[in-house]
Design a protein around this nucleic acid. Structure first.
Length: 589
RNA sequence: GCCUUUAUAGCUCAGUCGGUAGAGCGCAUCCAUGGUAAGGAUGAGGUCAUCGGUUCGAUUCCGAUUAAAGGCUCCA
C-alpha cells in the first residue's frame, strides 16, 4: 500500500479522482467541454466549459455517478499517440480545449492519454491503476475560473473536491477544515470587536474598532522602536502627490489602474491632477535628494509607518487581508553596491525578528520573486539588468542558506523580491513581508552619491517592510491564535467580572488601578450570571479573568475554574501586573 | 473586473404561495440569589440593504445599485 503522506502519490491519487469527476460529468452532461483538472494541495479540481454553473443538486448527482465509476473497477490505461492522431481524437470527441493544449505542446513532446472505461483524457499522468482505489472523496465547491488563468479568456466552471484512501481520513480532513474556518479572522475579528465594515463607507475600507486599533498601535510602536534601534531614520511624507511624481517613478505607466486619482487626467493642462500614494518609495526618495550624498553617508535607512491607497478591483477584497487603504511598515535603504548583501541580510534579520516576536516565524515560507521575461510590458529595465540583479539576489539568498522557491512573474515592476508568504485559514497564500532590490528608480530620480574616486554613482535601493501591512498581520495573528493574541499585544489582557452588582464599584476601582499600572483591562458589568460569562470568556480566549467577590480579589486564567470548584492558584493583581510587564519586556531580546 | 451565493431586531436565524413580521441569545427595568458555571417576570429594539418596476397593495415577484462570503484574475 503506497504511503498517502508521499506528495507524489497523493497527487496521483487526487489527479485520478479528478478524472473520475470529469468522466462522471461527461456521462451526465455530454455537451460539456473539458479543460484541465490537476491535483492541488488540498485535493483537486476540474474546469468545465458549460453555459451555467453546477447547482448543489447537480453536484450531488455527479458525486453519485463518481461512486458508480469507482464501483465499476475501471482499469486506468495509458497510451500514446502521434500529434496528428491525438488532435484528431480530441477533435472527434469535440474537446476544443484539449486540441488547444495539444497544439501548444512542444514539438518533441510525448502526447499521452489515459483511458478508463468510456472516458479518455489527454494527460501526462501518472495515474492510479484502477478507479476502485479511490475509496473516499467529496466535491466541496464550485467556482468560476478563467481558461488558462487569464482574465482575457472565457470563464469556465470549476469544481473543487478532495479525496482520500479511506472515509476516516476524509472525515478528519473535512472536520479539520471546519475547525480552521472557525479561526477565520473575517468572522472572529468581527465577533471579537476588532473591526467592522459599513456598506456606505465602501469595500476594502474597514473600521478598526478599539481592540483592533490597539493591537495595531502596539505593533506599530514596537516596530518603530526596533527600527530606531537598528539605525533607521524616520520620515513622514504626504498621502498624495501630483501625477508628475508618479510619472518619474513609473507608477503612472505601470500602476495607474490601481491608483486613486483626484482630478481628471484628461484635463491635466487646465487643472491639478493628484493621486493618493499606492507606495511610499517616490516620496521617501525626496528625503535623500535634499542634498548631495557621499559614499560616507551610505547606507541610509529610511523608515515610515505609511498609509497606502490602492484601488483594488472590487472582487479582490478580503476581510483585513486585502483592503484599499492600509498601513505598512515601509522602508527604503539606499546602499552602495558593496553594502547590498549586508543590508539585505539586515532587512531579513529584522523581518525574522518581527515574525518571531509575534510568533508567526514557523508559519511562513520564502519566495524569490523574479520577473517574467515573456511579459516585459509589466516591467521597466532591460533583460541584462534584470539578469544581473536577479543573479546578485540569488547569490545573497544562497549565501544565507535560505530555502525558498522561485516565483516567475511575481517581481515588482522595478526589481526582484524576496517575499515572505503566509497562508490563511482557507489555505490561500498572501505576502506578509517583502524585501526588494531596486536597481532602476535611483537613476530615474537622479539619486546619486559621490564615490571614493570622485565619480557619481547610482546606489541600489532596498524596498522592504519589517512586519508588512498591519491590517494583514493582525488578520493572520487572529487566525493563528484564534483571537487570543499573545499577552503583550492582546487588546484586552484581563476582564473583571463582579460576582454581583454589589461589587460593581469595587470592580471599577480595581480596573482603574490596574489601568494605571499599564494593564489593558475591562469591567464586564452587564449581568451577574458569572458562570455564563466564564464560558463566554473561555470562548473569547481571555488570558486572565479577575473575579471579584466580597472583599477578596482573585483571578486566574480562564482555563481555571471558579475558585469554588476547587483549587485555583490564586494570583493577586500585583503578581499579574508583574508577570505582564515581564512578558512585555521579554518580547525584546 | 469575472463566476457563484447571500443581505429580515445588536448576534444567529425562521417566515410571509404578495395583505407592512417572529424565535433563541443579547439588551433595559424589576424580583430572587451571600459563596453560587443562577432563576423568574415585564419591556424596548426592525420604513425586512438601497433605488426603481409590476400590482389595488411588495419585505415577499422582476430589474438595477451597494455591501458581504468563496473562487478566478490581480496583489502587501
Amino acid at each position: 500500500m503506497p504511503n498517502f503522506d508521499d506528495g507524489a502519490y497523493r497527487s496521483t491519487f487526487r489527479h485520478t479522482t479528478a478524472h473520475i469527476l470529469a468522466q462522471a460529468v461527461k456521462r451526465l452532461y455530454p455537451e460539456v467541454n473539458l479543460a484541465i483538472g490537476p491535483a492541488i494541495d488540498t485535493g483537486f479540481y476540474y474546469d468545465f466549459d458549460r453555459a451555467t454553473a453546477f447547482t448543489p443538486e447537480e453536484l450531488s448527482k455527479i458525486e453519485d455517478e463518481m461512486k458508480r465509476i469507482v464501483k465499476e473497477h475501471l482499469p486506468v490505461e495509458r497510451f500514446e499517440l502521434p500529434r496528428e492522431q491525438a488532435r484528431r481524437l480530441m477533435a472527434e470527441k469535440n474537446e476544443p480545449y484539449k486540441v488547444e493544449l495539444i497544439d501548444d505542446l512542444p514539438a518533441d513532446a510525448i502526447i499521452s492519454f489515459y483511458r478508463q472505461g468510456d472516458f479518455v483524457d489527454l494527460c501526462a499522468g501518472p495515474h492510479l491503476d484502477n478507479t476502485s482505489e479511490v475509496k473516499a472523496f467529496k466535491l466541496t465547491q464550485v467556482a468560476g475560473a478563467y481558461w488558462r488563468g487569464s482574465e482575457k479568456n472565457k470563464m469556465l466552471q470549476r469544481i473543487y473536491g478532495t479525496s482520500f484512501p479511506d472515509k476516516q481520513q476524509l472525515k478528519e480532513f473535512l472536520d479539520q477544515q471546519e475547525e480552521a474556518k472557525k479561526r477565520d479572522h473575517n468572522k472572529l475579528g468581527r465577533e471579537l470587536g476588532f473591526f467592522t465594515t459599513v456598506d456606505y463607507i465602501g469595500q476594502g475600507l474597514p473600521i478598526m474598532l478599539p481592540k483592533g486599533a490597539r493591537v495595531i498601535q502596539l505593533l506599530q510602536r514596537f516596530v518603530e522602536d526596533e527600527e530606531e534601534r537598528r539605525g533607521y531614520l524616520l520620515t513622514k511624507t504626504p498621502f498624495m502627490a501630483k501625477s508628475d511624481l508618479y510619472k518619474i517613478s513609473g507608477h503612472w505607466d505601470h500602476y495607474r489602474e490601481s491608483m486613486f486619482i483626484l482630478g481628471d487626467p484628461e484635463k491635466a493642462d487646465q487643472e491639478e491632477v493628484l493621486a493618493l500614494r499606492p507606495m511610499t518609495c517616490p516620496f521617501q526618495f525626496q528625503a535623500y535628494l535634499t542634498k548631495t550624498r557621499s559614499y560616507r553617508d551610505l547606507p541610509i535607512r529610511y523608515g515610515e509607518t505609511s498609509t497606502l491607497f490602492r484601488n483594488e478591483a472590487s472582487g479582490e477584497m478580503h476581510g483585513l487581508i486585502r483592503i484599499r487603504q492600509f498601513t505598512i511598515s515601509e522602508g527604503h535603504l539606499i546602499v552602495a553596491p558593496d553594502q547590498l548583501e549586508q543590508e539585505f541580510r539586515g532587512c531579513l534579520d529584522l523581518a525574522q525578528f518581527m515574525l518571531k516576536a509575534v510568533g508567526l516565524d514557523d508559519d511562513v515560507s520564502y519566495r524569490f520573486s523574479k520577473w517574467d521575461p515573456a511579459d516585459q510590458e509589466k516591467y521597466i529595465g532591460s533583460a541584462d539588468q534584470w539578469d544581473t540583479v536577479q543573479n546578485t539576489m540569488q547569490d545573497i539568498l544562497d549565501n544565507m542558506g535560505l530555502s525558498y522557491r522561485v516565483g516567475i512573474g511575481e517581481a515588482a515592476f522595478y526589481g526582484p523580491k524576496l517575499d515572505i508568504q503566509i497562508k490563511n485559514v482557507f489555505g490561500k497564500e498572501d505576502t506578509l513581508i517583502t524585501i526588494q532590490i531596486d536597481f532602476q528608480l535611483a537613476e530615474r530620480f537622479g539619486m546619486e552619491y559621490t564615490d571614493r574616486d570622485g565619480q557619481k554613482r547610482y546606489p541600489y535601493i532596498i524596498h522592504r517592510t519589517s512586519i508588512g501591512c498591519y491590517e494583514r498581520t493582525l488578520a493572520l495573528l487572529i487566525e493563528k491564535y484564534a483571537g487570543a493574541l499573545p499577552l503583550w499585544i492582546a487588546p484586552e489582557q484581563a476582564r473583571i467580572l463582579p460576582i454581583s452588582s454589589k461589587h460593581l464599584d469595587a470592580a471599577y476601582d480595581m480596573a482603574k488601578s490596574l489601568r494605571e499600572q499599564g494593564l489593558r483591562v475591562e469591567v464586564d458589568d452587564r449581568d451577574e450570571k458569572i458562570g455564563k460569562k466564564i464560558r463566554e470568556a473561555q470562548m473569547e480566549k481571555l488570558h486572565y479573568m479577575l473575579v471579584i467577590g466580597d472583599q477578596e480579589v482573585e483571578q486566574g486564567t480562564v482555563a481555571v475554574r471558579s475558585r469554588l470548584d476547587g483549587d485555583l492558584g490564586v494570583m493577586m493583581p500585583a503578581d499579574l501586573v508583574a508577570r505582564l510587564k515581564k512578558e512585555v519586556a521579554e518580547r525584546r531580546h
